[in-house]
Amino acid sequence: MNREALDARLDPKAVAWLDQALAEAGEAGKAQDNVAVPKWELRFAAAGRHCGQDNADDVRTLLLQHAAADVATLTRLYHQGAAAERRAVLLALPHRVPGPEALPLIEDALRTNDTRLVEAAVGPYAADHLDPHAWRHAVLKCLFTGVPVAAVAGAEHRAHGDAELARMLTDFASERTAAGRSVPPDLHRVLNMTGEES
């Protein structure tokens, strides 16, 4: 989301707060920034209560962009962050890290059962870099925890021709049916994407 669209959703006080926060983020890494915790990182933590929780993802990813946060910074912010901050780091990865170096953060998020983190972890960065085994488990985890498959970036492309994923989905469907439980509707959507008949 760009700044104009974001501003339209903020009250004047939040806009002023964001102006200041982005200015501080722009100074990140410069010589005078030798305080214990850089000011913009405090803003990163506090974004929800100043701009509203509904805008927090967008505000935080914008801050990361202005601070030109690298893998080291993103990793630190993730590990020191509350769940909402971790989510923002995950959402920012595709724009900030071209290579696979940040995969440990995705893997960490996929080990949680917090659907806010799982949803953010299966974005374009995972589509580009997650190995096939981990990616299949991520898809299955979405089905288990109720994260909509629509959140899985590049699903159509990655699932296509994936016979192993088709087998896992079919087995999962059988397990649900054997237990007398319903099969998540999204399961059939992904199964169709594989193009593998079963």
Binding site: N113, F144, T145
Partner: peptide, 25 residues
């Protein structure tokens, strides 16, 4: 603290008779 956020939506599990966000299964 200036940080209370009390607007949590009512749970779907109690509204629609299912539990979409199992999280722990």
């Amino acid at each position: 603290s200036g940080r209370l956020q009390l607007d949590v939506p009512a749970p779907q599990a109690l509204h629609e008779g299912n539990s979409i966000l199992r999280g722990g299964e």
